[in-house]
Simulated scan of single mutants.
Amino acid sequence: MHLALEILVCLLQCVWLWLVAILKAVVPASLQPHKDVSGWVVLVTGSGSGLGRLMSLRFAALGCRLVLWDVNESWNQETEKLVQAASSGAKVKAYTVDLSDREQVYAVADKVKQEVGDVDILINNAGIVTGTMFLETPDSMNIKTMDINCNAHFWTVKSFLPAMLKKNRGHVVSIASAAGLFGVSGLSDYCASKFAAVGFDESLRAELVKKGKTGVKTTVVCPFYINTGMFEGAQTRFPAVLKFLDPPYVVDKIVEAVLTDQAMLCIPKSVYMFYFLRGILPISVNQTIGKLVGVSETMDNFVGRSKSQ
């Protein structure tokens, strides 16, 4: 009898949560309740360029205190100056960090806690891509890709999550990729690292639920290719369905997702459709659809980001 009651309660909860999810999907994010993050400390990895720089500017505009992490000191200092110029009185501090170096991550994290304080929003954004076929990719690049795109998430979260748990307030954001949901030719190590980031986010969220830490949220972001220069030369056969994304648009969606506590964000929305089909169709059918869409050819003309970007 007790088990039957548990099952009934579970079913009722599922129906209710399903209805809430549908409502959130229909109602524009701008009309949904937003949490106030003014005064929160936001740490952005890979803040020296691309999405990292834009997210830093956006969160500074919301009244947040910024901690900038990047391996490129000059780019990071430029972001620091841009944040200070765009948001008068903004508190921002830049640190040079090689995220592939675990001990360096821990050391700089301790420095941040001493000089700035506890981090409230951790945005693991830094990433690299080799863009070569698996057998043509050096072992060193396989290792570095996993270190930066995935393993660094472990070290940063271990450094800053304890304070979030203590206050039962915080947010961990993982900038993954649609390549963390689908395997792509020419992106074997990149896909592996992003699949790992998606799995880490899901497992971390499960642990937070088990601990009853309802005030600590996670968001995983899975966008298609973005016009930041990182995937320069990549192409898509049907841009009307899967087109390269405009960085400011992506940042708008990420910030909205954080402020509304959205657990998973896929951009564009067609990624959700392909993800659904991936789960219900045979692998052979998915491969046939992928061939039509041209997924395996997207990296054929890849050149990547130039050193000046």
Rank of each mutant, 00 (worst) to 15 (best):
6 E>T: 08
286 N>T: 10
107 A>N: 09
290 G>R: 12
38 S>K: 14
200 F>L: 13
255 V>S: 10
77 Q>D: 13
43 L>H: 02
137 T>L: 02
230 M>L: 13
235 Q>H: 14
35 K>F: 09
129 V>N: 03
72 N>A: 01
241 V>Y: 14
241 V>N: 09
267 I>T: 02
254 I>L: 14
132 T>S: 10
92 V>T: 14
107 A>G: 09
167 K>W: 07
123 I>M: 12
237 R>S: 11
26 V>Y: 15
87 S>A: 14
148 I>H: 03
154 F>I: 12
90 A>H: 10
48 G>W: 06
309 Q>S: 07
153 H>A: 15
306 S>R: 12
1 M>E: 10
244 F>E: 15
205 R>V: 00
265 L>T: 00
117 G>R: 09
254 I>C: 08
38 S>P: 15
266 C>L: 10
242 L>I: 02
66 L>W: 04
301 N>G: 07
102 R>M: 14
306 S>W: 11
178 A>K: 01
288 T>E: 12
253 K>R: 15
46 G>N: 09
245 L>P: 03
87 S>W: 04
44 V>R: 01
82 L>E: 09
186 G>A: 02
226 I>W: 00
18 W>Y: 15
140 S>W: 11
196 A>I: 01
300 D>S: 12
233 G>I: 05
152 A>T: 06
98 D>F: 05
58 R>L: 10
107 A>V: 07
265 L>M: 05
308 S>H: 14
27 V>M: 12
68 L>F: 07
106 Y>W: 07
243 K>L: 05
154 F>H: 15
273 M>F: 14
182 F>E: 04
299 M>Q: 13
216 V>Y: 15
226 I>G: 00
231 F>A: 05
175 I>M: 01
271 V>F: 00
262 Q>W: 03
94 A>L: 08
268 P>D: 11
2 H>Y: 10
159 S>R: 06
297 E>G: 06
17 L>P: 02
170 G>A: 13
257 A>F: 10
54 L>Y: 00
59 F>T: 02
188 S>G: 06
237 R>H: 12
239 P>K: 11
136 E>N: 07
10 C>Y: 15
25 A>K: 01
211 K>H: 02
240 A>T: 09
163 A>I: 05
289 I>K: 11
145 T>V: 10
22 I>D: 07
236 T>Y: 11
194 K>M: 03
183 G>Q: 08
32 Q>S: 09
269 K>L: 01
238 F>K: 04
240 A>V: 13
68 L>P: 05
148 I>C: 06
210 K>V: 02
185 S>T: 09
228 T>P: 03
58 R>G: 11
25 A>T: 02
32 Q>G: 13
67 V>I: 06
220 V>D: 00
285 V>D: 10
146 M>K: 00
112 V>W: 11
26 V>G: 04
165 L>I: 03
55 M>C: 15
233 G>C: 13
137 T>Q: 02
76 N>M: 04
45 T>L: 08
120 D>E: 11
28 P>N: 07
115 E>T: 07
239 P>F: 12
185 S>K: 14
309 Q>P: 03
15 V>K: 12
224 F>C: 00
188 S>N: 09
62 L>Q: 06
303 V>W: 03
149 N>C: 13
140 S>Q: 13
278 R>N: 13
158 K>Y: 12
244 F>V: 05
166 K>C: 05
46 G>L: 08
219 T>F: 03
155 W>V: 03
108 V>S: 09
244 F>M: 15
303 V>R: 11
216 V>Q: 07
279 G>F: 06
